[in-house]
Design a protein around this nucleic acid. Structure first.
Lengths: 205, 205
DNA sequence: ATTCGGTTTAACTGTTTGGTTAAACTTTTT
DNA sequence: AAAAAGTTTAACCAAACAGTTAAACCGAAT
């Protein structure tokens, strides 16, 4: 995959990202992408050959943003509690700062998640993991009393779900329960604290 | 909205449900719906006037299935703990039994969630609630020691996220962590127990 | 048996869509 | 300066798409 090297390509990628994130793969229109990029539609094909290839390019770069951030949020080498706190802190910031990206990834999951799992596995290997880093840490970690963490898989799912659900459901939540505002900094602070308290109940046993 | 009263309409709704759930609004094709229903495409317009109206019809009925089930899972009048256990038990069964529906709803949330929030608010009113029943119950409920439940909103989000996340992320999860199988009955049992334990830590304070 | 209303069909329509083409333009290389 | 390579344009293309049309068909009512 060649590097981005000129302005036209960059304009196309940016516009395509916007349109694909808003409309999805089927709903996006090449003419609309061209209009937003301020170029002639034929250039989309000149530079990227087809709609699907352009989509894949956009998807790959967006997925990398999310997953790199997410994997880096998992700081290895710390004590377990600090590591989990740090993960929640950073992961929530990433998710809160990229709302469109989250729904985009949900869209891809809906399509089967094949490409995404490929990217993820690639990243895991780069970092020397066999599986999800967070899960591996939980599987080898210990509670305060020195026992293995019970049901690390379930704990893992709960952590992920607690972090991400408010942002997935956000459009609906804020309409049905107006006082719930995931984008609000106070909400984010409260959310992090709540999840960290959950971590405590799990570790302090 | 007239009642379903003949076989052709029913065939169309069923086929349209399948195709919309698989392909989404933009990706679905009227000819494909007609093919699946075993009818001539013109009948789609004869009975439902347009693609968007057919989509709205399908969406409304699917949303009602999910939300009716979900609201009924919240049995009012029980003691708080039993009520929450029952909610988790029934809601998880609904979610596990309707995987395509979940991703369909996620899709709609992505589009803004306007229609869905209208349906939800309607249902709340039918049941005599101002807001989400589960949230109202948490707001008025008490812990074991008789105190109000701390941060009911955050607790609510955690319950919802813990229940639903494994199914949202399922396509990706089973590829990345093959031992995680949300559709497996043993998984479901373990998941419910895990969430109920979480409820306990919240109430027993 | 005929008429009427409802249903279904096959063909058609106009627009949109992703993609192509060849010429014009611009930049780089010789 | 001319040629070559790269970029951009406007027009075009065939297929796909949601939707329309009018006739044929069918069952019920008279």
């Amino acid at each position: 995959m060649p590097e981005l090297q000129n302005e036209t390509e960059q304009q196309i990628i940016e516009a395509a990202t916007d349109v694909f994130l808003e409309k999805g793969k089927s709903g996006a229109r090449m003419q609309e992408i061209a209009d937003r990029a301020g170029i002639n539609k034929a250039l989309l094909h000149y530079y990227f050959r087809s709609k699907i290839l352009l989509y894949q390019r956009v998807f790959a770069s967006q997925a990398k943003i999310l997953f790199s951030g997410m994997l880096e949020a998992m700081v290895v080498g710390q004590d377990l509690r600090s590591g989990l706190y740090g993960f929640v802190d950073r992961y929530m910031d990433i998710v809160a700062g990229n709302p469109r990206l989250i729904s985009f990834i949900m869209w891809e999951i809906r399509e089967g998640g094949e490409e995404m799992s490929r990217i993820l596995k690639e990243k895991f290997q780069e970092m020397g993991f066999q599986s999800v880093p967070l899960l591996e840490v939980l599987r080898t970690g210990k509670t305060t009393s020195g026992n293995p963490i019970p049901n690390p898989e379930q704990f893992f799912l709960s952590l992920m779900g607690m972090c991400i659900y408010p942002f997935i459901a956000r459009p609906l939540l804020t309409r049905v329960v107006p006082e719930l505002r995931p984008e609000d900094p106070d909400f984010l602070t409260a959310r992090k604290q709540h999840i960290m308290a959950f971590i405590d109940t799990y570790l302090d046993r």
